[in-house]
Simulated assay, not measured.
Amino acid sequence: MQNEIKVHEDEELSLKLFIVLSRALESVRKQVVKDIKSYNLNLTEFAVLEFLYHKGEQPIQLIGKKVLLASSSITYVVDKLEEKGYLERIACPKDRRVIYGKLTERGHQVIKEIFPQHRKAIANIFSSLTKEEKEHAIVLLKKIGLFADSI
């Protein structure tokens, strides 16, 4: 009987953790989206620009995987960024099936200008935590994510 009570309490605590984590993530996400929209971009456009800014030209299929987009969605995002003059497609000379995404000079300038501002906005969102609390949260959240992936 005592064991059943402990199991029930642990299940209730896990449910509460899930709800708190979900609500916190939603609140953080709203602030991040608000910041990114202020640059006339949506979340996925910003993710693609930021990825290419830090990694250089990449196969479009890989970009989609890295920013967690379906292959049909990455095509749409790349089209939009190309229309804005931020990205260009480059055919791979060795394999015509592979197309690379590369920042244009304009795209590079835009992300170079806005990324430091975005980094400050993210820092502001998490400014209620100390350095140690952030480090501890990273460890705990990684542990949760890795375990969830393994089951």
Rank of each mutant, 00 (worst) to 15 (best):
E88Y: 02
P93R: 06
A91R: 13
D95W: 03
L87E: 03
H108V: 01
V28Y: 15
H108W: 02
A148C: 08
D35P: 00
Y53M: 05
V67E: 00
N42T: 11
S38I: 04
H54C: 02
V48A: 13
S71E: 11
I151G: 14
L13M: 12
L103I: 05
E105F: 06
V28G: 03
G85C: 07
T130V: 09
T104I: 05
K55P: 02
F51P: 00
L25E: 15
V32D: 04
P59Q: 14
I5A: 12
F147H: 13
R29T: 02
L21S: 12
L87P: 02
L17N: 13
S127D: 15
S128D: 13
D149V: 06
P59F: 12
Y53D: 13
K80G: 01
I144F: 12
S150C: 10
F115K: 10
I36N: 03
K66I: 01
Y100I: 01
V20C: 09
G56I: 04
N40L: 04
K131F: 05
T104S: 06
A91Q: 10
K131E: 05
L103R: 09
I111N: 06
I138P: 03
P93V: 04
K143V: 00
Y76P: 00
Q31I: 00
K120P: 04
L62S: 12
I111Y: 02
I19Q: 12
F147Q: 02
R106E: 08
I151W: 10
E133C: 06
F126C: 07
E132S: 08
Q109Y: 07
E133K: 10
I74N: 02
R23V: 06
P116L: 06
K143R: 04
S72I: 01
H136D: 13
K142V: 01
K37I: 00
F18A: 15
L49I: 01
K6M: 09
L13F: 08
K102Y: 05
E57N: 01
L140Q: 14
A137N: 11
A24D: 03
S14P: 00
K66H: 11
V98M: 11
R89L: 10
I36K: 07
T104V: 06
L25G: 13
H136S: 12
Y39E: 09
E45C: 11
K66F: 09
E57R: 09
S127H: 10
V33L: 10
L49P: 01
L103E: 05
E135R: 15
